[in-house]
Nucleic acid binder design. Sequence first.
DNA 1: GCAGAAATTGCATTCGGATGCAACAGTGTG
DNA 2: CACACTGTTGCATCCGAATGCAATTTCTGC
Lengths: 337, 337
Amino acid sequence: MTESRPTTSYDVAQRAGVSQSAVSRCFRPGSSISPKTRARVLAAAHELGYHPNAMASGLITKRSNLVAVMISNLTNLYYPEVLAEITRRLSDHGISVLLVALQAESEADAMLDQVWRYRVDGAIIAARVSPEQLSYFERRRVPVVLYNRFGEGGSVPSVCCDSVGGERQLVDQLVAAGHSIFGIITGPDDSYVSQQRVGGAQQRLQELGREALVVKGAFDYDSGDAGLRSLMAKTGGKLDALICANDLMAIGAIDCARVNFGIDVPNALSIVGFDGVAPATWASYRVSTVRQPVGRMTEAAVSMLLERIEDPDLPPEVRTFSGKLIEGTSARLASIG
Amino acid sequence: MTESRPTTSYDVAQRAGVSQSAVSRCFRPGSSISPKTRARVLAAAHELGYHPNAMASGLITKRSNLVAVMISNLTNLYYPEVLAEITRRLSDHGISVLLVALQAESEADAMLDQVWRYRVDGAIIAARVSPEQLSYFERRRVPVVLYNRFGEGGSVPSVCCDSVGGERQLVDQLVAAGHSIFGIITGPDDSYVSQQRVGGAQQRLQELGREALVVKGAFDYDSGDAGLRSLMAKTGGKLDALICANDLMAIGAIDCARVNFGIDVPNALSIVGFDGVAPATWASYRVSTVRQPVGRMTEAAVSMLLERIEDPDLPPEVRTFSGKLIEGTSARLASIG
DNA sequence: GCAGAAATTGCATTCGGATGCAACAGTGTG
DNA sequence: CACACTGTTGCATCCGAATGCAATTTCTGC
């Protein structure tokens, strides 16, 4: 009963009375093997608890069946869902996930070293990665799909939620509902998503002849709080509509408005977010926001990656998905629709 | 510039004018290599962008430097933090994470197949796994550390937060503050954590001559809502103190109490949770809860696992950490302290 | 400058599975 | 029953790095 060393294909071969090649062919779809032999081998494999060694097979096939999933701040509420979805979809295709969780930008190089060593078949990147680091993937011909970011003028396949369009919708609704003094809380400067969202909102505001005060945030709860305080000070409390670059900051701002300033949200102040995370639907918040279609986006990311693993020469492609406007009750919206 | 096929140690050897063995020794700490050769090799490796092939080295050393991290429901708010911490700590030791995200119990076998194929060096399990599945790890001599669960009478190393003790503290405080009609919302039946928390609370209540109405939940927001409704019905609205098996349900219950029943929490109803997740600290909730020491727990889990990878014969060990009582404002507590 | 010890280096082999090729069996035809 | 053809099978080799061993170099002390 002491199953000391892991079983190899030779053990199985011996037990089944066939050659090692036969065992190998048994576990490799598309190989020529007779049903009879197959059954014998599978029986022996089962008895011995045999599982093919992925390192050995990866070594020779040059396919690790590993995909790196790189995520910046896992604690962002939005990413766990994405990560879970991606993992599930990949494993449906027999591919395992090498998780790379970046905290600081500086770690990226050390983590990438791991990625290279394992000869991953591809990568899905939802993290900030420098252009040089990205170009490394290209040079090594490791397919990459960016998630909610954008690589060097669209030269890298990516899946995005239409931030600009979503923000324009929010702004349209806010303006139509008669708001007048706008504030924006951004994400970090180097965040593509933040740039898009803030840019989209500002642009639409300008088109409609409005403008907004902008303060910087960091995509977290406290930023919403701090951002609101700052904007209230700057506007002498006249702030009318607040656009937050994500839901988490919107939630922070809602709490701050109510608890700290005693403001009636949404009657005295409208607050909108972006993402459509779970807490945004909670009864205390019911954030007016744009929900990203996580299911369709992850599906696209995975299938784009798999296609490019099969055929690395596919041209880059950028798929953009529209988010869904969620009315919520944290903002007075025109409610066209 | 077309770096077609990945560089091998032979390429580096040739460029540096040494043998392949020398290159290998360069990347393997503790090997005998002169500083001069080392420098030459490293230079050549750098020029060629060489990264040792983990599959090849794993094949021969029988160490994959991979650890499987198995998590049930990633979307549980509590786990992302745990996952991020564990990943970071492992990568500090040069170990990468093979992520296994279980949704349904049924997937476990298919996912475990992946785990076996990659010959992971160990596993950290924060997912529901059957005893047979667990015993497979033992048979294959793959070290395992359970996270917040408990294997077959303590025969598997594990790291836990003291649920019983935490609940007892909460109950003590609630009773001391004069509550009289208690309700409990549990987690899923098969959850170890739920059993411990509910059992701990019940036991202490009994010791103090009280009892509680118990309804079943599923650790999610909606369960808090549904649980509260059910308890209100059963008690004719007299419910006084509500003990939720985790924060998320406490949050759901708080929202339901305020929004649906117009109850003043905590003055008319005290609600407590467990975990200490980020949303529990938000101004709208400030949940009275017990916070798990995630940092210490993940550190323990990782170091216990690493020790057992080095020496598989270390005896099983269960490390239990006390949580920290967070007063919050969702419950009237005696506030001893 | 030399014997001997110590450190370094290269050679050859190994890990476990995949696969081209040749040998072989089984089938249907004339 | 010989023949061509399709379908299986085993043999030998390969993937890329690690390592025991022996050969070589460098170092040490005298």
